[in-house]
């Protein structure tokens, strides 16, 4: 893999830091008039999502990380791995483990499309679409005539996520939910 010097740093560049794949978010040159230049770099660790700022002496370089993003279809889980299939017609499958699936686990629905980040061809993160549609499998019965008050109650979705929903929602409803905030958007059926 190529190496990149500080002058080539830009947002979106994928590099290896302490052996982990990271994405550069921002790169700022700090150069005192008479002094050594530094690059102040904000980056995200692509494995655990941590965002932090690190300063490099200008001229240092980092090894590039072989990282690519691809959309894949979720198939099933065997309890240990979660299996996805490429959507390019190759039917090629990959298996993501617990460390890659993490937050996405509660949003999985068979046949839906997910964004998978591959590092050296192995999945390191799985991200659901911003909005998904899921069925309610459990919630308390609604209280009649209380819709105007905007009250909420918890509802468990088929994927396992628990979201706050309006009181009129009942078991069997299909809801549109924002996966980034776990917020109810609207009812799709019924």
């Amino acid at each position: 893999m190529a190496t990149f010097s500080t002058s080539e740093f830009k947002s979106g560049l994928k590099v290896l830091i302490d052996g982990e794949p990271c994405s550069i978010l921002e790169n700022e040159v700090v150069k005192p008039g008479k002094g050594q230049a530094f690059n102040r770099v904000r980056m995200r660790n692509l494995k655990n999502g941590r965002v932090w700022e690190r300063t490099y002496k200008s001229g240092e370089s980092l090894e590039g990380a072989d990282v690519m993003e691809t959309d894949m279809q979720y198939l099933y889980t065997d309890g240990e791995f979660w299996h996805f299939m490429k959507t390019d017609g190759s039917f090629e499958q990959i298996a993501a483990d617990e460390s890659a699936i993490t937050d996405a686990k509660i949003w999985l629905k068979e046949e839906d499309i997910y964004t998978i980040v591959l590092w050296n061809d192995a999945p390191i993160s799985v991200t659901p679409q911003n909005f998904v549609e899921l069925e309610v499998v459990d919630t308390d019965p609604g209280l009649k005539g209380d819709t105007a008050q905007g009250g909420t109650k918890p509802a468990t979705l088929s994927s396992g996520a628990v979201v706050k929903v309006p009181l009129f929602v009942t078991i069997g409803d299909v809801l549109r939910v924002d996966t980034r905030t776990s917020e109810y958007q609207n009812r799709v059926t019924k």
């Binding site: 700090v30 005192p32 002094g35 050594q36 530094f38 102040r40 932090w52 700022e53 690190r54 300063t55 490099y56 002496k57 240092e60």
Partner: peptide, 21 residues
């Protein structure tokens, strides 16, 4: 104070680093 990656910095380099950052 900083997450810094730099070899071979002098006293002056460090002073300027702390001043600027």
């Amino acid at each position: 104070s900083l997450d810094i990656v730099a070899a071979d910095l002098s006293r002056t380099d460090y002073l300027q680093l702390l001043l600027s950052h």
